[in-house]
Design a protein around this nucleic acid. Structure first.
Length: 242
DNA sequence: AAGAGTTTCAACCGCCGTTCA
DNA sequence: GTGAACGGCGGTTGAAACTCT
């Protein structure tokens, strides 16, 4: 079966947006919102595809968009996040307020990619992931009152870890990291509080050093952030192992 | 000054996951 | 259970701007 195009292409305008089109779109969204992108252009009187309207709004017309060049701190954050998340631009953008996935993707391909040596990148990412998981596992053991485990886990062993979301197997307020031959380790709010309390800062977890800059310090109570990082790191370790 | 080559970035395309009838 | 509709995402394109010769 052939899927229908996202909109009727007949008569739809393409290419750069004019100031007038921008004003129409902004005015319509401010008044009516954007519950249905497909229907929006017709209702607003724009000869544009709904997808085109959404892209224009999301990337350029939203009031919370930060314009202008990226700061050094933002660029460093992108490089660090890219090492961890790969080409998941929307996930990276979610950590940089006011920046869009498209903008980050562009700045990566035009500036930042050149800065990162591919071999060095892979090696450091593996080391960072190993260190990260060692610390998180150790933290859970420590919290459970068990002595630190040894020997060290290899990166391939790390890749056997899987994260499951709260409610699936770890109760109502946590994420569990299940090892292939061990009991589930519960990663919940208390875990992170304990980890943060090790010396009073998130950097004490030995999380990859790039994340320790002041421009990229999540709030200590931002548990969702760390849970997402954990899931993302799990995805990344699988990719590295393959 | 002008043509060629390079860089930048807004926008498009097609795929995927989710929702809903 | 199935397929259409839709939003969202990452890859790619191409015109404009810029730099070099």
């Amino acid at each position: 079966m052939v899927r229908a195009p996202c909109c009727d292409k007949m008569g739809m305008k393409k290419g750069p947006w004019t100031e007038e089109e921008d004003q129409i779109l902004v005015s319509y969204i401010q008044t009516h919102g954007h519950e249905n992108w497909r229907a929006l252009p017709k209702l607003a009187g724009l000869m544009r595809c709904g997808k085109s309207c959404r892209l224009r709004w999301m990337n350029y017309l939203r009031p919370d968009i930060k314009r202008g060049n990226f700061s050094e701190e933002e660029e460093e954050a992108i490089i660090s996040l890219h090492q961890l998340l790969g080409n998941r631009w929307s996930a990276i953008a979610a950590r940089l307020p006011g920046r869009t996935d498209n903008e980050i993707k562009n700045v990566w391909h035009t500036h930042l990619k050149k800065r990162v040596q591919p071999k060095e990148k892979k090696a450091s990412t593996e080391a960072d992931l190993e260190s990260f998981f060692l610390r998180t596992s150790a933290g859970a053991e420590r919290r459970a009152g068990n002595p630190p485990t040894s020997p060290r886990q290899s990166c391939s062993e790390v890749s056997s870890l899987t994260a499951t979301t709260a409610g699936e197997s770890a109760g109502t307020n946590g994420v569990s990291i299940e090892e292939e031959c061990g009991k589930p380790l519960e990663i919940n709010e208390s875990f992170w509080e304990d980890a943060l309390a090790m010396d009073g800062s998130v950097t004490s977890m030995d999380f990859p050093s790039e994340f320790q800059g002041s421009s990229f310090s999540p709030e200590e109570d931002d548990v969702d952030f760390w849970l997402n990082v954990l899931r993302d790191a799990g995805d990344m370790s699988e990719m590295l192992a393959s």
